[in-house]
Amino acid sequence: MLNLGQSVFLKNNDKIKKTVVKIPSDIKYIRRISSKVLEAAASHEIDDSMKFDIRLCVEEALINAIVHGNRRDVTKPVKVTYWLKNSNLNIEVEDRGSGFDYRQLSDPTANDNIMKGSGRGVYLIRSLMDEVEYNDTGNKVKMTKRLGA
């Protein structure tokens, strides 16, 4: 596993610089990762509200990966990849878990679920990001935020 803070820069055919960071499954790392992602977006003028949304969505995705995906097993890494393309900030978060069926998630705003303790993380991501995609297994989420000019 890479040490936290070491990033691998990948260049694909589009000459997009991607940063890849792997962290152990420990929630103590989530703030540092969300800060790194926000630094990557700093070349765009984004307001505090958008910074809040990006931070929240990155941290919610990391919590899901660490707590639900890898079940806090520190030997299992969470891989975070982020890159800018055409003023879009893209963030992928992948865990080593068996995934989940995101299509079967219940609506946390429904009357039957509103008092429940879980289910709001994915809902917030879907509400605050411009695009959200899961892989078929459900152990990798790709989030996109349009940063504007």
Binding site: E59, E60, M115, K116, S118, R120, G121
Partner: peptide, 13 residues
């Protein structure tokens, strides 16, 4: 300054 889904769940509890 910040609340996440765990914070919201705590307040609901």
């Amino acid at each position: 300054s910040y609340v996440d889904s765990s914070g919201l769940a705590t307040l609901v509890e």
